[in-house]
C-alpha cells in the first residue's frame, strides 16, 4: 500500500476525490502544509478554487514541492491542480510550480465558464480506453497552453478552442476535467492514473 497525499488549499470539496482515490486501495491523506505534503508516494493537487489563492497557499512550500517533483515524486493535478503545474496564469497573481513549461490562459469559447460534459480525444490508446472514459465533466474558465505540445495526452474542443484535456511529463500528470465528477468511468480513469504514476 502506498501513501497518496491530497494537498488541501482550503477552498473546496475534497470528499469525492478522496473517496475516489481511496477506492484504489491506497492510504489517502489530506495535508494543508505544502512542505509536509511532499512526504508521500504520490502528490495529488485537487481542483477547486481560484489560481491566486491556491498559489498563495502553496507559496511557503513552493520550492520544496517543485524540487520534489523535479526529482521524481509522482504527481497528479486536477483542474486548477493541473494549472498549478504550469508557470503562471492569466487568472491571477502568483507562481505555479513551473514543472511543465507554459501558461494558463482564458478559454476561447462562446460560453465561459466551460461547464458540463465534453468529449475527450486521447492522443493514443491507453488509460482513457481502459477506463472507458469518452465524455468528462468540466468546470473551469482557464486552460493550459504548454510550450511543448508533446506533453498533451488528450484534447478537448469547445467553440474555437482546442485545449489540453490531459498532460503528462515524466511522472507528473494533469487533467483539466474532474475525473471524480465524471461518473464511474472517471473514477476508473483516476485509478488508471494512480497506477501509472506509481509504476
Amino acid at each position: 500500500m502506498k501513501r497518496l497525499t491530497l494537498f488541501d488549499y482550503g477552498a473546496g470539496n475534497l470528499h469525492s476525490l478522496g473517496k475516489a482515490l481511496a477506492e484504489t486501495g491506497h492510504d489517502v491523506r489530506v495535508e494543508t502544509d505544502p512542505r509536509r505534503a511532499v512526504e508521500t508516494d504520490l502528490l495529488v493537487l485537487p481542483g477547486v478554487g481560484a489560481f491566486q489563492l491556491a498559489a498563495a497557499r502553496m507559496a511557503s512550500g513552493r520550492e520544496e514541492m517543485r524540487a520534489a517533483l523535479e526529482s521524481g515524486l509522482p504527481a497528479i493535478g486536477i483542474c486548477l491542480g493541473m494549472q498549478l503545474l504550469f508557470d503562471e496564469s492569466e487568472e491571477g497573481e502568483g507562481r505555479g510550480l513551473g514543472v511543465i513549461p507554459g501558461r494558463v490562459e482564458r478559454i476561447r469559447s462562446p460560453r465561459v465558464p466551460h461547464i458540463g460534459w465534453n468529449g475527450v480525444e486521447p492522443v493514443d490508446e491507453g488509460a482513457f480506453a481502459r477506463a472507458g472514459l469518452e465524455v468528462a465533466y468540466y468546470a473551469h474558465s482557464f486552460v493550459c497552453r504548454p510550450e511543448d505540445e508533446r506533453v498533451v495526452t488528450a484534447w478537448t474542443t469547445e467553440g474555437d478552442d482546442r485545449f489540453p484535456a490531459a498532460v503528462r511529463k515524466d511522472r507528473i500528470a494533469g487533467v483539466q476535467f474532474h475525473p471524480e465528477k465524471s461518473s464511474r468511468e472517471g473514477v476508473a480513469l483516476l485509478a488508471e492514473m494512480v497506477r501509472e504514476a506509481l509504476r
Binding site: V48, A50, A139
Partner: peptide, 8 residues
C-alpha cells in the same frame, strides 16, 4: 466568485 471561482 473571487474566493472559489465563478464555476461554482
Amino acid at each position: 466568485a473571487g474566493r472559489f471561482g465563478a464555476q461554482c
